[in-house]
Amino acid sequence: MRAFDYARAQTPADAIGTDARIIAGGTNLLDLMKLQVETPERLIDINHVGLDQVERDGDGLRIGALVRNSDLAAHPAVRQDWPLLSRALLAGASPQLRNRASTGGNLMQRTRCYYFYDLDAPCNKRVPGSGCGAIGGVNRIHAILGASEHCIATYPGDMAVALSALDAVVEVEGPDGRREIPATAFHRLPGDRPDLDNELQPGEMILSVRLPAPLGGRQIYRKVRDRRSYAFALVSVAAAVTMQGGRMDRVRLAFGGVAHKPWRVPAAEQMLAGQAPSAELFDRAAAAVLEGARGQGHNDFKIPLLRRTLAAVLAEAVQESA
């Protein structure tokens, strides 16, 4: 860890438009600082600025950036009307980490790519232009969709996958004022700038996340991983499906562990909407999701795994909400 300056923000304004690095729960940033993967010179601590409430917002909900993952998962309104979010949160990390981890920090968490963590390895995300160690290396946890020749990392989190499926909106503020970024567009693909994880600009801060009106229906978050808890997703499927007269009505699907961002394919959702469920249809939807999918060697299995998991999740969703 490099020596750094530390300041405590009293209000969000103290943290906006500065070149200091925001620290919330610290569960990701501190680990990376100890290893010198991240070397901020200044930290601004936002744990005392408020923004720690979950509030009604019309039919929706506004979640402060500092609401802790465990509080959010346990919130009665979330459990009642957006169970997908609650389930995704509880599938992540451990109780101790969730007690500390914030909504904003969770969105901003960085990849778990082994080479990103290893200062002696090439990594375009850590040191632009140095190369990508994971290509041709150990890449069991890497992306099968939307990767580039510069980076094949995944966004590792769970919460954002649910937010993406739920069409949440991230509310941010920068020196030029406030703006909204749809959760589906918050994270970006690596392209030739893998150092950029998401669309948040320097000087901007996440204030809150807004959930639109509840989708209803059956909501499932299925996280497939190498052990039953305390492991990142190899593949996760977030699904919300409502039924009408034996047909699927509204369908929202998002996938974690497979790309540099939570993966959403509207075409696949549209393919299902208004149709009677069938194994054959699920397969076609999976094929649409997996269009362009490519394995890197160790992670080839994610392609069939996603297909199978999606089919099982859909079968479960239509059955129980029928």
Partner: peptide
């Protein structure tokens, strides 16, 4: 997970080296 190119231990922490939870 050893990188076959140089023998590096890639998963050298307890988040990525999995023991039963």
């Amino acid at each position: 997970f050893h990188d076959a190119r140089d023998g590096s231990f890639m998963n050298r922490d307890l988040a990525e080296y999995h023991v039963p939870a």
